[in-house]
């Protein structure tokens, strides 16, 4: 899933300054799971903004709140239409994709990002999320024991560890595991160290040129396994 962190209250207040009536818009999917922008966080942020507004003594803003099932899907944005009649801007707690989907769907309304979209990852433990996939478009996990060096090695290198690894940790962050030590141990366990001995050439950064697009093969190859 996509993981994000809510921006600071100060930054959000700075961003909304020009807009009097602000709709705080949550997202019911990834942002809910990573506690950055679900219904609960929308409500907390709403209260925090109102409180800050009244404390400042010269508040001009009014807020409303709403959460859609998924901001990154036009279908779920249709329900917004009757919520924005008296709104000057949307403060989206969706990821960067949600913010842009809103901008495309509502061309006359400013939309502001309330979170910093961070990465694709998973919860390592309650409240701690770790990056797992860099969406490089050229998956090599079959070669690396299911551990991604593009994402989990700070240098994203393909041919084994650098010399900076120490105690199994990364030179860039002593709390972070060295991806290549993990890969070595996993491949050893699987009896597949030959995969690490192979030479991996320069990565192809053009597998899908940016901005990237994927067309579903299922809808193109009609008749092949699709009934």
């Amino acid at each position: 899933m996509i993981v994000a962190e809510q921006k600071s209250l100060a930054e959000i207040r700075q961003m909304i300054t020009p807009y009097q009536r602000v709709l705080i818009l949550g997202c019911g999917t990834c942002m809910t799971v990573c506690n950055a922008g679900g219904e609960r966080e929308v409500s907390f942020l709403h209260n925090a903004l109102r409180l800050a507004e009244s404390r400042s003594g010269n508040g001009i803003h009014t807020f409303s709140e709403y959460t859609v099932k998924r901001q990154c899907d036009y279908e779920f944005l249709d329900s917004l239409v009757d919520k924005i009649g008296d709104v000057d801007a949307i403060l989206s707690l969706g990821c960067g994709i949600g913010v842009q989907a809103i901008a495309e769907r509502l061309p006359d309304l400013p939309v502001l990002p309330g979170v910093n979209t961070s990465f694709m990852g998973m919860a390592e433990e309650w409240g701690v999320w770790d990056e797992r996939c860099a969406a490089c478009g050229d998956c090599i996990l079959a070669e690396t024991g299911g551990i991604c060096p593009i994402t989990r090695c700070t240098k994203g290198i393909l041919n084994g560890p650098c010399a900076g690894t120490k105690n199994g940790k990364c030179e860039a962050n002593k709390d972070m595991d060295c991806a290549w030590i993990l890969i070595y141990k996993r491949l050893e366990r699987l009896g597949q160290l030959d995969k690490m001995r192979r030479y991996y050439p320069l990565r192809n950064f053009r597998t899908i040129p940016r901005p990237r697009r994927v067309a579903s093969k299922a809808s193109i190859d009609v008749g092949e396994g699709n009934g």
């Binding site: 700070t154 240098k155 290198i157 393909l158 041919n159 084994g160 650098c162 990364c170 030179e171 320069l202």
Partner: peptide, 24 residues
């Protein structure tokens, strides 16, 4: 050389390139 991580240096906010590694 692959090169040290930018995180150990004096321009920690720089974009690390690592388009290649030492073997490549």
């Amino acid at each position: 050389l692959t090169g040290d991580s930018v995180d150990v240096g004096d321009h920690k906010e720089a974009k690390p390139v690592f388009d290649s590694d030492s073997v490549q």
